[in-house]
Design a protein around this nucleic acid. Structure first.
Length: 623
RNA sequence: GGGGCGGUAGCUCAAUUGGUUAGAGUACCGGACUGUCGAUCCGGUGGUUGCGGGUUCGAGUCCCGUCCGCCUCGCCA
């Protein structure tokens, strides 16, 4: 085999006159009969080859061989680098030179490919790209993303190594802990009737590594959650997972901020300014969501005081809900509004759109969305105009209204109202086109650290308390005492307890989340109790953790970054599959390998299983 | 589990209110051509319109079911 002396992205004017060998794929051939051009591609670039009978080293045999080459054949060539003085190709980095081939070796002939790995052509449908993943990955764009991802790995390892972290692997076959996300389970062969689960995250192992004295741990690890995917979510994904001993939350936040800075500097060449912190309360109040997109305004205002003076039935009804509860209690009724400024998008809010908003907020459990417009003459129009008119002065002051503005109202219990408007805010922003381009395309990188999350929230279905982050999250230092003393039935107090958790948000997307952990077995026991676990159940599920914590556990905390989402940001894609070499579809299928597939009855028997699934009645054909 | 969009040649797409033999570009095959770089020119192969059923004189088109892909709600401690 002719082995390459250079890559296809390497040759420049300085190589002129040199004899080189190249390996690669035929990206394109231009056959002029007695003169043939080939663009040869590898992951480093593209170089034009020339086959010319009348050049030194050329021959009819060489031409005949080149004549048979087709797109995506794998070849090796030797030839002389020549300047393209009169007709350089400005589209190629190597466009000022070409290689005049004297020797050709076909290393791998292709059958007619289902599609060509061409970034300039329209992409074939994703089903096909996933089935022939190796063909899709040949595209320079995909190679670039794979390289970006590699760079993220390397920068990550370097940064944490420099900061004293040990990279330690944790088990993939793990114990089932059926809280949280649905788990993938794996039957045990040696212990009949028993099961492993694949980890949703290495959470407990990394805590135990802290108890083990490892001081600082990091891992780029695979996590598994058997839940339906989304554009930015897969059942199998990668986290940059870390944990630190002898820290308060400020120390972890500093470390993760340093990581973000280093990553953006090394991978994107961007200097990230100091990251602002915002409390969960403020995020919910201003943006209606715990991961605010701060790239645009359209902030939410609580106008309950003004609304109380309006003779509007559904405002009054909403405000009457939980009126005895504290101000930010989830069940207390409120009226909130978004002002869409005139000249800043309000004119794009057609009747059709605002009618749709009514339906939209209903999907989040709110009763509806009221609308009013302030016309150029400063008169309220449409929707609830006649109810607003009497409180015009107060509402104008509360929202800073200007002629031309449109106001969107939602009235409901605090949690519902906030959620509905938070989602509506993002939809309105998209509808009126005020969302900037992604950072990777030159838009802003708006980072935010959100802190002071509630420890617990009510599960909508069971009405039981669930941990907002996870059950190992500590209360904020100054909340610990109140938490331990709190009666488990004291709903208002429990809801008000704030944790030592923190999230990093980038342009409205959660890219990392973590917390200081509980290292006191008594506090941990209290959490389990609150979550409705008896001491026996807690022991059954987490005795190893409680035991570990009782043998001298250092204060510790950590965080996990969603690595796939980091790469998505650098690559400027909204599709998580684009940043994974071998992603799965909506039903968790790998279209290339055909997973999931059948196993033999013997394989099942070996792990003490019998499938209850029966094939549906045979239907000829299929899709 | 719910909602939405899509599936026509290897690929990207077209096909009037349901109406003749389902077309085009590209890829592929054959031929011509010594400076192309989306090469060009000439000719050709290629289709169970995802699958199954129904309505109709007639279905790519309408209806029902189903499979697959994508988006989304639920879900994602």
């Amino acid at each position: 085999m002719i082995r390459r002396t250079h890559t296809c992205g390497e040759c420049r004017e300085t190589h002129a006159g040199q004899t080189v060998s190249l390996n690669g794929w035929v990206n394109r051939y231009r056959d002029h009969g007695n003169l043939i051009f080939i663009d040869l591609r590898d992951r480093f670039g593209m170089t034009q080859l020339v086959f010319d009978r009348e050049q030194k080293g050329g021959s009819q045999a060489l031409l005949d061989a080149a004549d048979k080459l087709r797109n995506e054949d794998v070849i090796a060539v030797t030839g002389v680098v020549r300047l393209r003085a009169s007709d350089p190709n400005p589209k190629l980095a190597t466009g000022k030179v070409e290689v005049v081939v004297t020797e050709l070796e076909v290393l791998g002939k292709t059958q007619n490919p289902p599609f060509l790995p061409d970034d300039t052509a329209k992409l074939p449908n994703e089903e096909l790209r996933l089935k022939f993943r190796y063909m899709d990955l040949r595209r320079p764009r995909m190679q670039q993303i794979l390289a970006l991802r590699h760079k993220v790995y390397q920068t990550t390892r370097r940064y944490f190594d420099e900061n004293g972290f040990l990279e330690i692997e944790t088990p993939i076959l793990y114990k089932s802990t059926p809280e949280g996300a649905r788990e993938f389970i794996v039957p045990s062969r040696n212990v009949p009737g028993h099961w492993y689960a694949l980890p949703q995250s290495p959470q407990l192992f990394k805590q135990i590594l802290m108890v083990a004295g490892c001081d600082r741990y990091m891992q780029i690890c695979r996590c598994f959650r058997d839940e339906d995917p989304r554009a930015d979510r897969q059942a199998e994904f990668t986290q940059v997972d870390l944990e630190m001993s002898f820290v308060r939350r400020e120390h972890v936040m500093d470390m993760m901020e340093g990581y973000v800075r280093r990553l953006w500097k090394d991978v994107a060449g961007v200097d990230v300014p100091p990251i602002q912190k915002m409390t969960y309360r403020e995020a919910m109040e201003r943006f209606g969501i715990d991961r605010p997109d701060t790239r645009y305004g359209l902030e939410i205002r609580d106008i309950s005081d003004v609304a109380a003076k309006m003779e509007l039935g559904f405002f009054k009804e909403a405000l009457a809900k939980g009126a005895d509860r504290p101000k930010f209690n989830s069940k207390r009724g409120v009226v909130k509004a978004i002002r869409v400024p005139g000249g800043g998008g309000a004119e794009k809010l057609t009747r059709k759109l605002t009618d749709g908003y009514n339906e939209f907020v209903r999907s989040f459990g709110a009763g509806g969305c009221a609308v009013v417009k302030l016309n150029a003459q400063g008169m309220f129009e449409t929707g609830i105009a006649k109810f607003v008119e009497p409180v015009k002065t107060e509402l104008t002051a509360a929202l800073g209204l200007q002629p031309g503005d449109t106001v969107l109202f939602v009235a409901d219990a605090y949690a519902v109202c906030t959620k509905a408007l938070g989602e509506l805010r993002q939809k309105v922003a998209r509808d009126i086109g005020v969302v900037p381009k992604p950072g990777a395309e030159g838009g802003p990188w708006n980072f935010l650290i959100v802190i002071d999350f509630p420890m617990f929230e009510r599960d909508k279905e069971t009405n039981r308390w669930v941990a907002m982050h996870h059950p190992f999250t500590a209360p904020r230092d100054d909340q610990a005492e109140a938490f331990v003393k709190a009666d488990v039935d004291d709903e208002v107090t429990i809801e008000s307890i704030v944790s030592a958790g923190y999230d990093i948000v980038l342009n409205g997307q959660e890219i990392a989340g973590g917390s200081i952990r509980i290292h006191d077995p008594a506090v941990q026991g209290k959490v389990f109790q609150l979550l409705g676990m008896t001491p026996e159940q807690a022991k059954e599920k987490f005795s190893f953790l409680l035991e570990a914590l009782s043998y001298g556990a250092p204060p510790h905390g950590g965080i996990a970054f969603g690595l796939d989402r980091l790469v998505m940001n650098f690559a400027g894609t909204e599709n998580i599959r684009d940043v994974m070499a071998f992603p799965k579809t909506q039903i968790g299928a790998d279209l290339m390998t055909g997973a999931p597939g059948f196993v033999t009855p013997d394989q099942l028997a070996e792990v003490h299983l019998k499938s209850t699934w029966t094939p549906p009645p045979a239907s000829p054909g299929g899709g």
